[in-house]
Amino acid sequence: MPVRCSLGHENPDGSAFCDECGEPLGNAPAASTAAPEPPTPPAASQDANQGASQICPSCGASNPAGEAFCSNCGVSLQGAPQPVAQPAQPQEPLAPPAPEPPDVQPAPAATGTGLQARLIVEADNQEFDLSGKDNITIGREDAVSNIYPDVDLTPHGGEEGGVSRLHARIFVQNGKYMLEDERSTNRTYLNRQRLEEKTPVELHDNDEIRLGHVVLRFKTP
C-alpha cells in the first residue's frame, strides 16, 4: 500500500524517502541535508527528457528524469547532471541532379544545300539562282537531243554566241563551287583564261565566265 510522509505526499510501498520532499519514511536514516524542493521543470524539458535517467551524486542510484530527491538515499538531485536531449540532426538536402549535356548536333556536310550563289548574264542582267544545287549544267535547250540544261542560255544570245548544248558545268566539291568545261565547241573561259576540258577550277565571287561569246558573272552573297 502507498506510504505517506508527514506532509501527506504519497509514495510507493517500500520507498525509503519521500519522492516529493525527501523526508525519511519508516526507519530509514534521514538525509544529512535536505535541499528545498526545486521548481517543476517546464513541460517542454520533461518531454525532451522522457525516458532518460539521472544519477544520484551521493549514492550513485539511477533515478527517473525530473525527480527532486534520490529515491534511495533522499539526497537532493538538484544540481545533479541532467540528461540532455540530442538535437535532431538536420537532413542534408539532396544534391540537385546533374544537368544533362546539351544535345550537340554534328555539323552538316559541306554540300550545295548550304551554299548560295548566282549567275548573272551581263548582256541583260538575267539572274540564275544556284543555291541548294550540287550540280548545275549550262548550255542550250534541245528537245530533239533531250538536253535540258539547268541554265538555258538560248533566250540570252546563246545560239548566236556559240554556246554548246552542254557547254559547261558548275558543281560543289568540298564545300566550294567548281567550274568545268564539258568539251564545248567554243571553249570556256574563266577571267579570260581558257579552261582545259574536264578540268575543274574553283570559282570565287565576281569571277567572269565566258561561254563562246556569252559573258556571265558568278556572284556569292
Rank of each mutant, 00 (worst) to 15 (best):
G60C: 06
G161I: 06
R140T: 02
D150K: 10
P2C: 02
P97S: 05
A34H: 12
P93A: 14
S45D: 15
A95R: 12
E180G: 01
I209L: 13
N206D: 15
T40V: 13
G158C: 09
G60I: 05
P2Y: 04
P155Y: 08
Q89E: 14
A61E: 09
H204P: 00
N11T: 09
P108Y: 08
G14M: 08
P39E: 14
P36N: 07
L153A: 06
P83R: 02
D19W: 05
E92Q: 12
N11F: 10
Q126M: 10
S45T: 14
R194N: 06
N186Y: 02
N49T: 15
E67W: 11
E10R: 09
A123R: 14
A65S: 15
E182I: 03
F171S: 11
T154R: 10
P38E: 10
P36F: 06
L130D: 02
G162W: 05
N72I: 07
E160T: 11
I209N: 00
L203W: 00
Q89M: 12
Y177A: 11
P99M: 12
N125Q: 15
P24A: 15
G26D: 10
A98E: 14
L25G: 03
A31Q: 07
E196A: 12
S164W: 04
A80F: 04
N146Y: 08
E37M: 13
F69S: 01
A44S: 14
K133H: 13
G114W: 01
R210G: 02
H204A: 11
Q50H: 10
L190H: 01
D129Q: 07
R4Q: 10
G162H: 05
V151P: 03
T220D: 00
V3E: 12
A65E: 08
C73Q: 07
V172S: 01
L115K: 08
L166K: 10
N11G: 09
F69V: 05
A16W: 08
Y148E: 03
T40A: 13
T154Q: 07
D205I: 05
P29H: 08
Q173K: 15
H156K: 01
V163G: 01
E196P: 00
T199F: 04
N125K: 11
R194M: 13
P42H: 09
V151L: 08
D181L: 04
T188H: 00
H156M: 01
A68E: 03
N11D: 13
Q78F: 13
S145H: 10
S71L: 08
D19M: 03
A28V: 09
C73I: 05
G212F: 06
L195I: 06
P42K: 02
G60L: 05
H9Y: 07
Q46L: 15
